[in-house]
Each structure stands twice: as C-alpha cells, then as structure tokens.
Design a protein around this nucleic acid. Structure first.
Length: 545
DNA sequence: TTGCAGTCAATATC
DNA sequence: GATATTGACTGCAA
C-alpha cells in the first residue's frame, strides 16, 4: 500500500522527512543498479532499518550522499555515474576503500562533543551516534550491510570481546561510540549473537560495524583515546561540579532528559520497573511450558493469579520466547563450531554460559530443547496432549520445545508433578514441575483437552511429514529467517570478492551451523506454533489452573 | 490484532 | 565501575 501510494503520489523531496526520503534513495540506488535485487531485500526486512542510520546520521555526514539534492542525485553524489550502473562489485569496491580508511568515527564524535558521560544521546536515533564511516559511509554502511557476505557473528563478537578485554575498553564506550547502542544492548549482543542468517538487515548492522571496526587496528587506539578523553572530561566536570555544585550534576539520573526540553514532569511519569519474583517467573515459565502462546484469556488468568498486569504477562511471554530462541541460536552456533561434538557437548557448554543466569531461566527453553527432546518422555506424558502427538513423529520430537523448560526446571526441584495446583498427576504438565513447591499460585496449565487434541493430532502428522524437508519453514524461523534467508542466501553467492576482503573474512563463516539442529529447531517452533494456534482456535477447552 | 526484532534503560550481579 | 539481566517499548509485517 505504501509503495503504491508512493509511486503514484510522490512527495517533493523538500517536503519529505528523512525517513520519508529513504524509499526514494533506495529506489534510486536500485535503479542505478547499486542494489541488486536480491541484495537489498528491503522488503523482506522489517522496514526501514537499513537506512535507519542514514536518517540518524549527523548532518555533516548526511551531506555526503543523502544531501538535500533530489534523491536521485544521491547515488550520483556518492558514486560515479548514475547512468552507468555501477556494478555491485565496483560500488562495493569503492565502499571498501572508504571503509578501509581509518574510521573517522571516533574523531567525529570526539570533536562534535567531548564524550560527555552524561549526555544521553538524544532519544532520537542517536544523533550523536558514531558511525564508523564518513560521508558516503552513511550510505555505505547500509550498502555494506545489505551486500555484505555472510559474517560470522559469533566469531566477530568473540574477537570484539577479546579486543575490548585486552585493551580494557568498556562495552558502554564501545557501544555508544562504535555501534550506537547502549551498554545493555552491547552486552546482550556480544553474549548472544544471532547467526547472520537470522538477522534482519538492521540486526546485521552492528555486526558489520564491529567487523569494520576490527578491520582497522587503529580503531582500538582511537577508542582508547576516547576513553582517556572521557575520563578527563569526567574529572573536569567532577571538579567543577564539586566547586560550583548545583546546576550541573544534580541531574544525574533521570534529569538529563528533562533538561533538554521536556516540558513534562518526567520524574513523576517514571514508573518503577517491575521486577518479577522468582515464584512469579517460575509460574510463568510453567505456563509457558504448557502454552508458549497463551490465549488472551489465559494471559488474563495468569495475570490475575499472579497479580500482575496483563501487559506484564504479555511482555514476559514475548521476551521469553524471543530470548529462548536466541539461546537456541547460540546453541546451534556453539554446537556447530565446537566440532559438532554433538548434542552432548551442548549441555555442558550451555551450562557454561547460560546456566549462570540465575535460575538459568533464560536458557530453560534452550536447554530443554537441546537436551531436548527429552522428547520421549514428553510424548508419554502428554499422552494426547497437543504437542505430544507431534512427538509421534519420531523425527520431530522437537516439540520438546515447550517441554524444554522442563529440563531446566529439573534442577529447580525435582518437583513432584502435579503438586501445587492440585495438578493431576496424569496431566501432561511437564514433569519439570520444578515449581512444585512454587509457593505462588502457580497456575497450572493443564494439557489441552480432547478437543484440542483432535485438532493437534490432526495437524501434527502432517507437519511431521513435511518437517524434514521443509524444516526451515518453521514459524520461528519463518519470521526471522524469511527476510534473511531469501536475501543473504542468494546474495553471498554472487557477491564480489572485494566484500570479503573488506570484511576480512575468508568467507561465509560459521553460520553454517548444524543443519540438523537448525532443522529440528525450526521444526519444533513450527509445530508448537501451529499447535498452539490450532488449539487456541478451538477454544473449547481452556487451560485449567 | 498478534508476534517478532531490536533496543532501551533500570536493576542485579560480578 | 563494568557487565549481565530483563521488563517495557517501538515499529513492522502478516
């Protein structure tokens, strides 16, 4: 719809916002042949991200390519003759050269504003966001992201971590300066990188930036310089504030923002962060095990029973699903890189990193999944329960996903099945029950009733069948993979070698994770999702608590 | 409307 | 003080 509208009623450049200009830039690039069809599957990718940083570029940078000129000029200004469709390789080559230059990033931010510790990069897309590239880089980074060969995200993060550690550089500085991300995001990214093919274009950007950053050893030096400057600035401020006290720093925490120009009384608006109690988490996890995609009604009930806001419950499920998925990715990667040691190794590896997480909640799913398929049991337990059926298809015990948690739960408590909610033993409720003792009103999601079963069982077989071959179609993957799969899959193939040199990569790296695993995971997600969908549609039976 | 990706930012932990 | 965790939010797509 947007495309149609845009094509039929294009707004004049001058009336477009930066964001609004993006599509035109893309079109121009596409017309120029700089963006091969498959190369920039913008569509596949959740909108705009690609040019996101372009829009957020500091003006000076923008001028490079995304100038006030009419969009069409854009590419022209960046790259040679607009008419002579620069071959991707050529364009890439030029980009490469640009990129290879010592990244101006640091200087930029440095000059622009002394890295004031306090300055919260305006909420908007990091106006101060350092971009590792100069002028043209604005677009270049986008292009690079779109055209880059498959990168080994795991390897990149590993290297980055090493470099940061070796040089005693913090995630915050690195994130804000090089990636334009906050410390938390950087930490998450470094600890749990998603495989390249599962990343959207936007999601790939940080990795490309990291790779570019790694390519130039000088960058480390620059970052260290920045660190020094930051420290200096901090000391200065500290001193000054100590002497003249007041105005500056009381702001400390949340006030930074208000100072800017927010007319609203932010302090009051600030709502306290919700912190779920362990019992609540356990309860939610159990609910998740039973139903990763709870119906609104179920959510409502959960919220009521746990005395939480429904939005909190919803968010929790979203986050949990998402994070479990990521854990799974890591598993894949690790499993893949660690000499396919086989499933066996994963558990340990897992425990190594994920486990640490407190109750290891985050990994729950993963572990389970991995450990997986305790499958067998699931089947048994779930007798007729939805997923259970699926299990029927040996190959796909994947469904274990949900049960997944179980594995994890185990440690928690070899709980007695059925306890708290007076669950009936026979119930499919995942053995994990760790929470048995769960003090809280842990809702017990009973297994779907007959009705659902019917539905599920009906579907299951079918899916099972298709599983092997169509594995990748799994929903989980589907969504995330769609864009990536389609694009990257093809792109790398015909990608100019220059790109490889640019990224200093031997080639598509690691992502070649264990296909079997991938398949299983995809399959699993697919099955679960469908089952849930089907089950919820049925409605007849609600989970019992 | 729902689910997801990507993030932020508060808070917990090391 | 740095890093890890996690609830919430934004923007999209289907």
């Amino acid at each position: 719809g947007s495309v149609s509208d845009m094509l039929s009623r294009p707004k004049p450049w001058s009336k477009l916002t930066q964001k609004g200009r993006e599509p035109f830039i893309r079109m121009q690039l596409w017309l120029n042949g700089e963006l091969g069809q498959g190369v920039l599957p913008v569509q596949g990718q959740p909108q705009g991200p690609v040019l996101h940083s372009v829009t957020s570029l500091p003006d000076p940078l923008q001028q490079g390519c995304v100038s006030s000129e009419s969009t069409p000029k854009t590419s022209a200004s960046c790259s040679p003759a607009p008419e002579s469709p620069m071959s991707s390789s050529e364009s890439v080559k030029s980009l490469t050269e640009l990129v290879q230059q010592p990244c101006p990033t640091i200087e930029t931010s440095k000059e622009g504003k002394p890295p004031e510790p306090s300055d919260p990069p305006a909420s908007d897309s990091q106006p101060t966001t350092p971009l590792p590239l100069s002028g043209h880089s604005a677009l270049s980074i986008q292009e690079l992201v779109a055209m880059s060969p498959e990168l080994d995200t795991y390897g990149i993060t590993k290297r980055v971590k090493e470099v940061l550690t070796d040089n005693n550089l913090g995630q915050r500085l690195f994130g804000e300066t090089i990636l334009g991300l906050t410390q938390g995001s950087v930490s998450d990214l470094l600890a749990r990188p998603k495989p390249w093919h599962k990343l959207s274009l936007k999601g790939r950007e940080p990795f490309v930036r990291m790779q570019l950053w790694l390519n130039d050893p000088n960058n480390v030096e620059k970052l260290m310089d920045m660190k020094r400057m930051e420290k200096k600035a901090y000391m200065k401020r500290r001193h000054s504030s100590v002497s003249d006290s007041q105005p500056c720093e009381p702001p400390s925490v949340g006030i930074d923002y208000s100072q800017g120009a927010s007319p609203q009384p932010q302090h009051q608006l600030k709502k306290p962060r919700v912190v779920l109690a362990p019992e609540e988490k356990e309860a939610l996890k159990r609910a998740y095990q039973q139903k990763p995609y709870p119906s609104p009604k179920t959510i409502e009930e959960l919220a009521t029973q746990l005395n939480l806001k429904t939005s909190t419950v919803i968010n929790w499920f979203h986050n949990y699903r998402s994070r479990i998925r990521r854990e799974l990715f890591i598993e894949e990667i690790q499993a893949g890189s660690q000499g396919q040691a086989g499933a066996s190794d994963s558990p340990s590896a897992r425990s190594g990193r994920a486990a640490p997480s407190s109750e290891g909640d985050s990994c729950d799913g993963v572990e389970a999944t991995e450990a997986e398929e305790p499958g067998g049991n699931t089947v048994a337990t779930k007798s007729q329960g939805g997923p259970a059926e699926v299990a029927a298809a040996p190959a796909d015990r994947e469904e274990a996903t949900q049960p997944a948690e179980k594995a994890k739960a185990k440690p928690l408590s070899s709980g007695t099945p059925g306890q708290d909610d007076g669950e009936d033993a026979g119930r499919p409720r995942p053995p994990p029950e760790g929470l048995a003792n769960a003090p809280a009103p842990v809702p017990n999601l009973a297994a779907p009733a007959a009705g659902e079963d019917a539905a599920t069982s009906a579907t299951a077989p079918a899916m099972a069948t298709e599983a092997p071959g169509a594995a990748r179609a799994g929903p989980a993957e589907r969504s995330s993979a769609l864009p990536s799969t389609s694009a990257p899959a093809t792109a790398p193939a015909r990608r100019p070698s220059s790109l490889q040199s640019l990224f200093g990569l031997p080639e598509a790296a690691g992502a070649r994770d264990n296909p079997v695993r991938k398949k299983k995971a995809a399959n699993l997600n697919s099955i679960i999702h469908r089952l849930e969908k089907a089950a919820s549609r049925e409605e007849p039976i609600e989970w019992e608590f």
